[in-house]
Amino acid sequence: MSDRTRHVVAFYEIDRAWGGPEEGGWWYDCGELARILKVVPSADAAHDLAARANRLMDRLQRGKRDVGSVIYAGGRYAACVLEDTAPRAFPETRPHYE
């Protein structure tokens, strides 16, 4: 990792997507970029900021359905740490069952 690597802390609206019927069906985590919180030069600082943001989000989202619930309809957010840039969505390509 280079000393010039930037670390982006961004909020994503999180969800689960159907992966396929293999082994009785499987799901994967996905998310859409909601907003960039901050860009910092240190990975440690980025992870500390994301942890604080997620603790706050957990309190604010109390009472909302869990992303794993069959009746989840969106509205949960999580802070993620990424290097250099925050993609509009994750994963960038649909995973394959292995």
Rank of each mutant, 00 (worst) to 15 (best):
V40C: 03
M1V: 05
A46Q: 02
R35G: 14
A53F: 02
P87I: 15
V67C: 12
L37G: 05
Y28D: 05
A79N: 00
F90M: 02
H96L: 10
M1P: 08
Y97V: 02
A46E: 00
Y97H: 15
H47C: 11
G75H: 02
I36E: 14
E98C: 00
G68D: 06
D29G: 14
R65N: 11
R52N: 10
R52Q: 14
F11I: 15
L56Y: 00
L60N: 06
G63F: 10
L82C: 07
A34G: 06
A10S: 10
H7L: 09
K38Y: 04
S69Y: 02
K38Q: 03
I14F: 05
N54V: 04
G68F: 03
P87E: 10
D3H: 06
L82K: 06
E23K: 07
R35P: 00
P87Y: 07
R55A: 07
A45Y: 00
H7E: 06
R6I: 14
G20E: 06
R94A: 06
D29N: 11
D29M: 04
Q61C: 12
W18A: 14
D15E: 09
R6G: 14
S69R: 03
V81F: 04
G63T: 03
T93F: 05
A73F: 03
V39R: 01
H7S: 08
Y97A: 03
V39E: 06
P95E: 03
L37P: 00
F11H: 12
G20K: 03
R35C: 02
L56F: 00
E22L: 08
G31N: 04
A73E: 11
V40W: 01
E98Y: 04
W27V: 13
A89H: 04
V81T: 04
F11N: 00
E92M: 12
G74W: 03
R59G: 06
G68P: 01
W27I: 09
P87S: 15
R76K: 13
R94E: 10
R59P: 02
I71K: 05
E13K: 07
F11Y: 13
Y12Q: 05
W18F: 13
R35D: 14
W26L: 10
P21T: 14
L49S: 08
